[in-house]
């Protein structure tokens, strides 16, 4: 009699356990598939971005064809649009930003990893990274009201005067000093991407095995020689990745540039003259665009921008991934 009760109980327990297990299994399956579909959604978002931009830009390419990429005219009245000035402005401002930001960023990274006293490293590092936290529009308003007038008053006249006697450079730095323009936009972009270049360079600098540096110091190298001959060659791939990442940021930066580029749809030989970029054109004109071709042209500009930044950023990531693999090996 008691045997039956015990058996019954055991049976009930086993059933309960089986139930709990199957509930677990079901919960597991559901949870796994939820997370899996979330991961796939990230890919879907990217696909959606590309597809919707392509769809939106079809009318523009249909109307203008290949000329859209090579034409310099931007005329809403005749519905003739060319992307060349915007592409030119985007590339020039970004390159200018890179030229200024790379030496600065590497300098800060070297300072933070080699020269700075330990106690000050974290606060200074955070302060530089705060530059990345300041919203783009703040750089814009600051650049327009404070920085551009300052450049116009004190810096640009000196630059114009300095380069005036030099044949080719005199036209690159030709006046008048507007304050706003391609040059100013490039400088502001440089400040904005400085923290990205700095923090990545600093991270990759710290992957250099101490023994390599110690060996170099041991044979009497100066700090500069250690950085130049040991640290930078060892981390070259990572630094290039960081620079490309900064370039990607600079290419797509919108609000700051919109404030200070001057929004002139023409290619000007002088860096000091107003110009435009892809992102600034879209930000300025999209809500005012009337007509399918106009809107579509702006979306086509967006597609171009996305493709350019995609290539640059993909390249940056590949470089950084290569460094990761190298770092993973003993």
């Amino acid at each position: 009699m008691t045997d039956f009760v015990v058996q019954d109980r055991a049976l009930a327990k086993a059933k309960e356990r089986a139930k709990a297990l199957s509930a677990f299994r079901l919960g597991d399956l559901v949870f796994k598939n939820i997370t899996l579909s979330a991961a796939v959604t990230v890919l879907v978002i990217l696909g959606g971005v590309i597809l919707s931009l392509i769809r939106g830009s079809i009318p523009a390419f249909h109307a203008m064809g290949f000329e859209f990429l090579t034409s310099q005219s931007w005329n809403p009245v005749t519905d003739k649009f060319g992307a060349l000035p915007a592409i030119y402005g985007t590339v020039v401002t970004s390159l200018l930003a890179i030229v200024v930001a790379v030496p600065l960023g590497l300098g800060v990274a070297v300072f933070l990893t080699e020269l700075c006293p330990m106690w000050a490293r974290r606060p200074i590092g955070i302060a530089i990274e705060l530059l990345a936290g300041i919203p783009s529009i703040i750089y814009g308003i600051w650049g327009l009201f404070i920085f551009a007038p300052f450049l116009q008053e004190y810096v640009q006249p000196a630059i114009i005067e300095f380069f005036a006697p030099i044949p080719f450079l005199s036209s690159v730095f030709a006046g008048p000093a507007y304050g706003i323009g391609t040059f100013t936009a490039g400088i502001i972009l440089a400040i904005m991407i400085l923290p990205f270049i700095t923090s990545i360079s600093r991270d990759v600098f710290s992957t250099v095995p101490p023994v390599l540096k110690e060996a170099a110091y041991g044979i009497g190298c100066t700090t500069w020689e250690v950085v130049r001959k040991v640290v930078i060659p060892y981390t070259r791939v990572g630094v290039v990745g960081g620079v490309m990442l900064g370039l990607g940021r600079a290419l797509g930066e919108t609000m700051a540039v919109t404030f200070i580029i001057g929004n002139a749809h023409k290619i000007s030989g002088s860096l000091l003259a107003p110009g435009t970029t892809i992102s600034a054109t879209i930000a300025n004109e999209f809500t005012e665009a009337v007509g399918d071709i106009y809107t579509s042209s702006l979306i086509a500009l967006g597609l171009l921008l996305f493709l350019i930044t995609f290539v640059v950023l993909a390249f940056a990531r590949l470089m950084l991934m290569r460094l990761d693999q190298k770092g993973g090996k003993p």
Binding site: A39, V49, S52, R55, G252, T254, F286, L298, R317
Partner: peptide, 24 residues
């Protein structure tokens, strides 16, 4: 793949995201 794409979306120009949502 997702990590790679996500890192690109992380730095993708926000204005392009705006265009995408406008379209959709």
């Amino acid at each position: 793949v997702v990590r790679f794409i996500n890192d690109i979306l992380l730095s993708a120009p926000s204005i392009v995201i705006g265009l995408f949502v406008y379209e959709v």
